[in-house]
Design a protein around this nucleic acid. Sequence first.
DNA 1: ACCTAAAGTCTACAGTGTAGAGAAGTTGTC
DNA 2: GACAACTTCTCTACACTGTAGACTTTAGGT
Lengths: 247, 247
Amino acid sequence: MASSEKSDNLRGARKARLSRDLVLSTALALVDAEGLDALSMRRLGQELDRDPMSLYRYAANRAALLDGVTEMVLNELAIFPDDPDWQAQLRRIAHDLRLLALRHPNVVPLLVTRPLSTPLGMRPLGTLRPLEQILALLIEAGFTPADALHVYRAYYGFLYGHLLNELQEYIVDPEENEAILRLGLHRLPAKDFPHLRALGPVLADYDGAAELDQGLTILLTGLATQLSPTHHHSDGDAPLEQTGGPR
Amino acid sequence: MASSEKSDNLRGARKARLSRDLVLSTALALVDAEGLDALSMRRLGQELDRDPMSLYRYAANRAALLDGVTEMVLNELAIFPDDPDWQAQLRRIAHDLRLLALRHPNVVPLLVTRPLSTPLGMRPLGTLRPLEQILALLIEAGFTPADALHVYRAYYGFLYGHLLNELQEYIVDPEENEAILRLGLHRLPAKDFPHLRALGPVLADYDGAAELDQGLTILLTGLATQLSPTHHHSDGDAPLEQTGGPR
DNA sequence: ACCTAAAGTCTACAGTGTAGAGAAGTTGTC
DNA sequence: GACAACTTCTCTACACTGTAGACTTTAGGT
């Protein structure tokens, strides 16, 4: 198909210099368009009209390249640690991340999988930024650091779980969705999967945003009964005052 | 360890016939021992003392092999759909699955990732069994099928999220854990990650079971306020009253 | 113009999944 | 036994992968 090689750049148009950002964003575009498997060094090189080996200047190896892609995606997520209404902020972040995941569904496996093979401290910094900022948000709201961590865990755990759930039922394009879904369900032996088969219509229309929001309500109210901001930084911690401080 | 090649089978001991179960369980053993990347057709063939191509009799391709492995792991999970105490049952299943995940940490990426690339109806049946059985459990307990699905989603979403969370902080062996962890954290720039760095000690001891159980309490009590069994079903336990469902 | 360091390229190697054709082994029927 | 039908396993080959190492080209500074 695309064996144009140098014909594109013949007349004067010099090859643009590569940069980590350029490499990562074309990698992301490729993953978005054709899936994770399409992202090979050779293919990406071809996409950039460069020798595959040149990529190693910008990512130590393929794994690092993948990390870079997830970092790039997570950078699209905005967090405002100074918002005093932490619950609203958590809600907003959750919905933002959900939209992000729907926009880059092929990246989600990386998002949930890469951290499993990398000790926390060794992860790309861009990946840890949300964690740090949410901790900041919660501590700022009056939680003790340890409690903030607990809240974060419950929150992010639930959030990731929801994303996995929703994406599992959404991969195919909405047009064929119902057909393929039902076709799939039809394959199931009626003896062994009566309930699942009966739920076909219900499965067909999944309102992810609503489900997420409802889950968040459960979680937040549940959390409120177990932990809440103490609102006066207790027993001897440093005066953590950031009103109008440097960002 | 087991690079015996043919020495085992030298004197008379004829090669045992392969079977899907044998193939899948040695595949699982290999993944448990050396990780997902070690599971190549050639390597697995060598482990079984067979030509790699023979494996294709028992799994259509590598992806199907991976599916088989996850199926095999999920088969270790027992569910009793007749238990009238559905909350206790959900609790028990969650803890069982947690232990399963800790016993096969390298399989967890498959567990959460494979469903993302396979429409629900096309998934291996063994993978859908827990879903069907939990639906049965909930319906048996008096939920309407649609509500059962909602409960299942919230529950499984939370559960998977927790597993991802816990495994992220647990990969390395507990002995080195603290050291490596702290070493990792030390790498983080103090300017950008103050909270995260300060939480080093807290991160070091993570009680997964407790955290999971606490989360389940939050979830179940939260669920009770939004949905409950309508119980026009058989007799037995004392139900919570029905609040006319939202939506 | 020269030097230096960075950026990009070429070649090569060991590994991958798997299609296709064939060989070896197993089983059933006479 | 002999034959056939069928399953299971093996061999060869191909296109593709990540990446080490040595090399060539380019860009900037003085």
